[in-house]
Amino acid sequence: MAPLDLTGMFGVTGSYLVYIGIGFCFGFILESSGFGDSRRLAAQFYFSELRVLKVMFTAIVVAMLLVFWASALGLLDYDELMVKHTWLWPGIVGGLIMGVGFILGGYCPGTSLVSTATLKIDGMFFLFGHIVGVLAFGETVGYFYEFWNSSYLGRFTLPELFGLETGVVVLLVVCLALAMFLGFGWIQRLVYGRGDPQ
Protein backbone atom coordinates (compact mmCIF):
# COMPACT_ATOMS: atom_id res chain seq x y z
CA MET A 1 0.00 0.00 0.00
CA ALA A 2 1.39 3.40 -0.98
CA PRO A 3 3.03 5.67 -0.06
CA LEU A 4 6.04 3.58 -0.88
CA ASP A 5 9.25 3.46 1.11
CA LEU A 6 11.49 4.30 -1.82
CA THR A 7 14.64 4.28 0.30
CA GLY A 8 13.81 0.83 1.60
CA MET A 9 13.02 -0.42 -1.88
CA PHE A 10 15.82 1.17 -3.92
CA GLY A 11 18.32 2.43 -1.39
CA VAL A 12 19.27 6.08 -0.91
CA THR A 13 20.82 6.47 -4.36
CA GLY A 14 17.92 4.77 -6.06
CA SER A 15 15.37 6.91 -4.26
CA TYR A 16 17.26 10.07 -5.23
CA LEU A 17 17.19 8.92 -8.85
CA VAL A 18 13.43 8.50 -8.60
CA TYR A 19 13.09 12.02 -7.19
CA ILE A 20 15.26 13.39 -9.98
CA GLY A 21 13.16 11.57 -12.55
CA ILE A 22 9.93 12.95 -11.11
CA GLY A 23 11.40 16.44 -10.99
CA PHE A 24 12.58 16.13 -14.59
CA CYS A 25 9.12 15.08 -15.74
CA PHE A 26 7.52 17.95 -13.82
CA GLY A 27 9.86 20.51 -15.33
CA PHE A 28 9.44 19.00 -18.79
CA ILE A 29 5.67 19.26 -18.56
CA LEU A 30 5.80 22.81 -17.22
CA GLU A 31 8.02 23.89 -20.09
CA SER A 32 5.98 22.11 -22.74
CA SER A 33 2.86 23.74 -21.30
CA GLY A 34 4.46 27.11 -21.98
CA PHE A 35 5.09 27.98 -18.35
CA GLY A 36 8.67 28.99 -19.06
CA ASP A 37 7.38 32.22 -20.65
CA SER A 38 6.64 35.00 -18.18
CA ARG A 39 4.27 36.72 -20.59
CA ARG A 40 1.98 33.73 -20.67
CA LEU A 41 2.08 33.39 -16.90
CA ALA A 42 1.36 37.07 -16.23
CA ALA A 43 -1.39 37.05 -18.87
CA GLN A 44 -3.40 34.83 -16.53
CA PHE A 45 -3.97 37.75 -14.21
CA TYR A 46 -5.36 39.88 -17.04
CA PHE A 47 -7.56 37.06 -18.35
CA SER A 48 -5.98 37.39 -21.80
CA GLU A 49 -4.72 33.81 -21.52
CA LEU A 50 -6.07 31.13 -19.23
CA ARG A 51 -3.41 28.50 -19.85
CA VAL A 52 -2.10 28.56 -16.28
CA LEU A 53 -5.54 28.15 -14.74
CA LYS A 54 -6.58 25.37 -17.09
CA VAL A 55 -3.37 23.36 -16.98
CA MET A 56 -2.68 23.67 -13.26
CA PHE A 57 -6.23 23.24 -12.10
CA THR A 58 -6.72 20.25 -14.41
CA ALA A 59 -3.53 18.73 -13.04
CA ILE A 60 -4.72 19.35 -9.50
CA VAL A 61 -8.11 17.79 -10.17
CA VAL A 62 -6.67 14.73 -11.91
CA ALA A 63 -4.10 14.20 -9.16
CA MET A 64 -6.80 14.64 -6.52
CA LEU A 65 -9.00 12.03 -8.18
CA LEU A 66 -6.09 9.62 -8.51
CA VAL A 67 -5.10 10.07 -4.86
CA PHE A 68 -8.57 9.60 -3.44
CA TRP A 69 -9.54 6.77 -5.77
CA ALA A 70 -6.31 5.01 -4.82
CA SER A 71 -7.22 5.54 -1.17
CA ALA A 72 -10.78 4.29 -1.73
CA LEU A 73 -9.48 1.11 -3.37
CA GLY A 74 -6.90 0.43 -0.68
CA LEU A 75 -3.90 1.19 -2.88
CA LEU A 76 -2.84 4.25 -0.90
CA ASP A 77 -2.98 5.11 2.79
CA TYR A 78 -4.05 8.71 2.60
CA ASP A 79 -3.25 9.28 6.27
CA GLU A 80 0.41 8.52 5.53
CA LEU A 81 0.66 11.28 2.93
CA MET A 82 2.46 14.39 4.09
CA VAL A 83 -0.06 17.19 4.08
CA LYS A 84 1.37 20.59 4.88
CA HIS A 85 0.05 21.88 8.16
CA THR A 86 -1.89 25.14 8.20
CA TRP A 87 -0.77 28.37 9.78
CA LEU A 88 -3.69 30.46 8.59
CA TRP A 89 -2.67 34.13 8.72
CA PRO A 90 1.01 33.61 7.85
CA GLY A 91 -0.22 31.56 4.89
CA ILE A 92 -2.57 34.31 3.74
CA VAL A 93 0.08 37.01 4.04
CA GLY A 94 2.68 34.83 2.34
CA GLY A 95 0.25 34.07 -0.46
CA LEU A 96 -0.43 37.76 -0.99
CA ILE A 97 3.30 38.50 -1.13
CA MET A 98 3.83 35.67 -3.59
CA GLY A 99 0.87 36.82 -5.69
CA VAL A 100 2.28 40.33 -5.99
CA GLY A 101 5.66 38.88 -6.95
CA PHE A 102 4.02 36.58 -9.49
CA ILE A 103 2.22 39.43 -11.23
CA LEU A 104 5.24 41.75 -11.17
CA GLY A 105 7.82 39.19 -12.18
CA GLY A 106 5.69 36.87 -14.26
CA TYR A 107 6.96 33.76 -12.52
CA CYS A 108 6.40 31.65 -9.45
CA PRO A 109 9.44 29.88 -7.94
CA GLY A 110 8.92 26.65 -9.87
CA THR A 111 8.41 28.27 -13.25
CA SER A 112 11.41 30.53 -12.70
CA LEU A 113 13.52 27.37 -12.49
CA VAL A 114 11.95 26.13 -15.72
CA SER A 115 12.69 29.45 -17.37
CA THR A 116 16.26 29.45 -16.07
CA ALA A 117 16.72 25.95 -17.43
CA THR A 118 15.90 27.31 -20.90
CA LEU A 119 18.37 30.15 -20.35
CA LYS A 120 15.83 32.95 -20.20
CA ILE A 121 17.45 35.95 -18.54
CA ASP A 122 14.32 37.21 -16.81
CA GLY A 123 13.88 33.78 -15.25
CA MET A 124 17.45 33.89 -13.96
CA PHE A 125 16.91 37.29 -12.40
CA PHE A 126 13.65 36.12 -10.85
CA LEU A 127 15.40 33.06 -9.44
CA PHE A 128 18.16 35.20 -8.03
CA GLY A 129 15.59 37.47 -6.42
CA HIS A 130 13.82 34.41 -5.05
CA ILE A 131 17.02 33.20 -3.40
CA VAL A 132 17.73 36.64 -1.98
CA GLY A 133 14.18 36.74 -0.64
CA VAL A 134 14.57 33.34 1.03
CA LEU A 135 17.86 34.43 2.63
CA ALA A 136 16.32 37.70 3.77
CA PHE A 137 13.42 35.80 5.30
CA GLY A 138 15.78 33.48 7.13
CA GLU A 139 17.72 36.39 8.58
CA THR A 140 14.69 38.40 9.65
CA VAL A 141 12.13 35.81 10.71
CA GLY A 142 13.22 36.22 14.32
CA TYR A 143 11.60 39.66 14.33
CA PHE A 144 8.18 38.29 13.43
CA TYR A 145 8.53 34.78 14.82
CA GLU A 146 5.34 35.09 16.82
CA PHE A 147 3.27 36.00 13.82
CA TRP A 148 4.96 33.33 11.68
CA ASN A 149 3.90 30.66 14.18
CA SER A 150 0.43 32.03 14.86
CA SER A 151 -2.99 30.63 13.96
CA TYR A 152 -1.75 27.03 13.79
CA LEU A 153 -4.49 24.63 12.74
CA GLY A 154 -2.48 21.45 12.24
CA ARG A 155 -3.28 19.13 9.35
CA PHE A 156 -6.46 20.89 8.27
CA THR A 157 -8.19 19.90 5.07
CA LEU A 158 -11.32 21.01 3.24
CA PRO A 159 -13.49 18.07 4.39
CA GLU A 160 -12.76 19.06 8.00
CA LEU A 161 -13.44 22.71 7.27
CA PHE A 162 -16.82 22.07 5.68
CA GLY A 163 -17.78 19.00 7.68
CA LEU A 164 -18.40 17.06 4.48
CA GLU A 165 -17.32 13.65 3.27
CA THR A 166 -14.09 13.63 1.29
CA GLY A 167 -15.79 12.36 -1.86
CA VAL A 168 -18.32 15.18 -1.76
CA VAL A 169 -15.55 17.77 -1.41
CA VAL A 170 -13.72 16.22 -4.36
CA LEU A 171 -16.88 16.47 -6.46
CA LEU A 172 -17.35 20.11 -5.43
CA VAL A 173 -13.75 20.94 -6.33
CA VAL A 174 -14.19 19.36 -9.77
CA CYS A 175 -17.39 21.33 -10.28
CA LEU A 176 -15.58 24.48 -9.14
CA ALA A 177 -12.77 23.84 -11.62
CA LEU A 178 -15.15 23.35 -14.54
CA ALA A 179 -17.20 26.38 -13.49
CA MET A 180 -14.03 28.49 -13.35
CA PHE A 181 -12.94 27.31 -16.80
CA LEU A 182 -16.32 28.26 -18.22
CA GLY A 183 -16.66 31.47 -16.21
CA PHE A 184 -13.20 32.86 -16.89
CA GLY A 185 -13.52 31.87 -20.53
CA TRP A 186 -16.71 33.90 -20.69
CA ILE A 187 -14.94 36.88 -19.10
CA GLN A 188 -12.09 36.46 -21.57
CA ARG A 189 -14.45 36.55 -24.56
CA LEU A 190 -16.27 39.53 -23.04
CA VAL A 191 -13.07 41.54 -22.54
CA TYR A 192 -10.97 40.42 -25.50
CA GLY A 193 -13.54 39.10 -27.90
CA ARG A 194 -11.75 35.78 -28.17
CA GLY A 195 -10.79 32.62 -26.30
CA ASP A 196 -7.30 31.29 -25.63
CA PRO A 197 -4.88 31.26 -28.59
CA GLN A 198 -4.68 27.67 -29.89
Binding site: W69, G74, V174
Partner: peptide, 27 residues
Protein backbone atom coordinates in the same frame (compact mmCIF):
# COMPACT_ATOMS: atom_id res chain seq x y z
CA UNK B 1 -12.70 15.24 -20.58
CA UNK B 2 -14.95 17.32 -18.36
CA UNK B 3 -17.55 14.58 -18.38
CA UNK B 4 -14.99 11.98 -17.37
CA UNK B 5 -13.75 14.13 -14.49
CA UNK B 6 -17.27 14.72 -13.26
CA UNK B 7 -18.14 11.04 -13.56
CA UNK B 8 -15.01 10.01 -11.65
CA UNK B 9 -15.71 12.57 -8.92
CA UNK B 10 -19.35 11.58 -8.68
CA UNK B 11 -18.49 7.90 -8.42
CA UNK B 12 -15.94 8.71 -5.73
CA UNK B 13 -18.55 10.66 -3.76
CA UNK B 14 -20.83 7.63 -3.87
CA UNK B 15 -18.09 5.07 -3.16
CA UNK B 16 -16.65 7.04 -0.25
CA UNK B 17 -13.36 6.69 1.58
CA UNK B 18 -12.58 3.59 3.65
CA UNK B 19 -13.39 3.68 7.35
CA UNK B 20 -11.00 2.09 9.85
CA UNK B 21 -12.47 -1.37 9.49
CA UNK B 22 -12.31 -1.32 5.71
CA UNK B 23 -8.81 0.12 5.87
CA UNK B 24 -7.77 -2.76 8.10
CA UNK B 25 -9.19 -5.16 5.54
CA UNK B 26 -6.81 -3.61 2.97
CA UNK B 27 -3.89 -3.84 5.39
Amino acid sequence: GAGLLLAAAGALAVHGQPDLDRKWAFM
